[in-house]
Nucleic acid binder design. Structure first.
Lengths: 264, 264
DNA sequence: CATCTGATTCCCGTTCATCGGTAACGCTGT
DNA sequence: ACAGCGTTACCGATGAACGGGAATCAGATG
């Protein structure tokens, strides 16, 4: 846009700027922000000033900037996840109080699992999930559940790719995966030990939306040795049904359920 | 900015657009979006296209647009509230399971209480708090707690304004308010029955941050008739101390504590 | 105290993305 | 057929955005 040598729009620059913040860089000075976002220094200063004026960024006491409350507020009032999160949280608490490990809620977004909520285990064990964090579909139980209930066309595309092997247990062969996806659909849950890190194991079940499609996966992460998954599945399933019902799900009307497209 | 008759920057337009969404308008068609945001139709279409490309907005099946996951993700990875929310949630659950009414966490932002988390009571009673919702400072227990521990200079400015009287119980007189604020500081909690709606009563306590300043208020909302506040205060206080400690609070080093400025 | 490094602010000429009107297109309901 | 509304497409004018360069400021270093 206007005279940008790079030919980028203001909007994409703003995204670049906000995206330059992450978990280990929650505040920065403007110069650092310019470096991390790859924008010209002068441009960064100008944009930052504007964003400060709009409340999208905030200035700290030490003159560094951080993502502003206003932005959080705008998003939290209307984003797609709000409804899902609100519906899920109480049930996730129930699960968490019974199963003593961390409980997560994930959705499928651009070929990855995006975790939109996670509670439990303050002093969490081996658990790499984070709120707003992403993990590969074929490396998580949640991902496999979401994939299992995805449209066949999407599965085909996904399985045609070369998949990274994270541990010995990671499934990367399309045929193997298809067999597992079928098993997941049949049993109604996924339990994949050590497919992304050897020490931990995840159990995941689907959450249904109003249109009887899968909109999310509810999951618990447990240490690899405690393999009494069977005990936990019913807990997860009841919770998932509770969430589904809160989302307007009217019970399984038809037999097989395949999501049309990540929407609620 | 570039040739805008209105003289607004692209950034402010984007904020206007996102701000046009709210709880009861989570999806819209573009024309409606143009109307609600007050932008020219053509301009709206162009900006929406760009925002779709960046993932800030998403297109629904019915061709309407909604706030995108990408935006939520960007914000949730780095916003100021993330740490606070994470630290507070487990303790809020504890409170919620003991006290049977909804528990909220609020901060002070631009002269209002902004609720950043709220859990409990699925079929909630009279409770107007919402996540990402705002309420007036002098109309909530949380607000009065936050004000009580604010810098004196800020209190002076705040109290010099004309305050709206919501119910008979609402305090609007500066002198009365000052007396109450002192009492709150002395007792360590606020309990204000029916100051914004007659039927409900809130109890709030301060949450401290690393620098020993008040960063948030933890609160429960109970029906007006159940006035056994005394029973609940200790529960809230222990939870608040737990949250404070999780935030890096090292116990009350000095005596009086006044926040420097809403930051953690 | 002088020097260096890095962040920040100020200045300013160039230019192209932005702006928003108009008009055509497509759908739905009457 | 027509009317109403949402959406897409086109296009000329213009001034906001751009970003290099230099000056200023704050801290650290020798």
């Amino acid at each position: 846009m206007a005279n940008s040598a790079s030919g980028e729009s203001v909007i994409s620059r703003v995204v670049r700027l906000v995206g330059a913040f992450d978990d280990s860089h929650r505040t920065m000075n403007v110069a650092m922000l310019a470096r991390r976002s790859g924008l010209p220094v002068t441009t960064t200063y100008r944009l930052v000033d504007e964003m400060l004026a709009e409340g999208l960024l905030e200035r700290e006491a030490n003159a560094e900037v951080r993502v502003g409350i206003r932005l959080w507020e705008l998003v939290s009032r209307s984003s797609r996840m709000v409804g899902l999160r609100e519906a899920a949280l109480p049930f996730m608490e129930d699960v968490q109080s019974v199963v003593q490990h961390s409980t997560t809620l994930g959705i499928l977004d651009s070929d990855e699992v995006l975790y939109i909520e996670r509670i439990g285990s303050r002093d969490s064990m081996v658990d790499i999930t984070k709120v707003a964090g992403r993990l590969p579909v074929h490396g998580t139980s949640s991902g496999l559940v979401l994939l299992a209930y995805s449209p066949a066309a999407y599965q085909d595309i996904f399985l045609s790719r070369t998949l990274e092997k994270f541990t010995d247990a990671t499934l990367t062969n399309p045929a193997d995966l298809r067999r597992h996806l079928a098993a997941i659909r049949q049993r109604g849950f996924a339990s994949m030990p050590g497919i992304i890190v050897p020490e931990s194991s995840g159990i995941a079940v689907p959450v249904f939306g109003r249109t009887n499609t899968v909109v999310a996966a509810l999951s618990v992460v447990v240490p690899r040795n405690e393999e009494n998954a069977a005990v936990r599945v019913p807990v997860l399933m009841t919770a998932a049904r509770g969430i589904s019902r809160a989302l307007g799900w009217r019970g399984e009307l038809k037999g097989a359920l395949r999501q049309s497209n990540g929407n609620i």
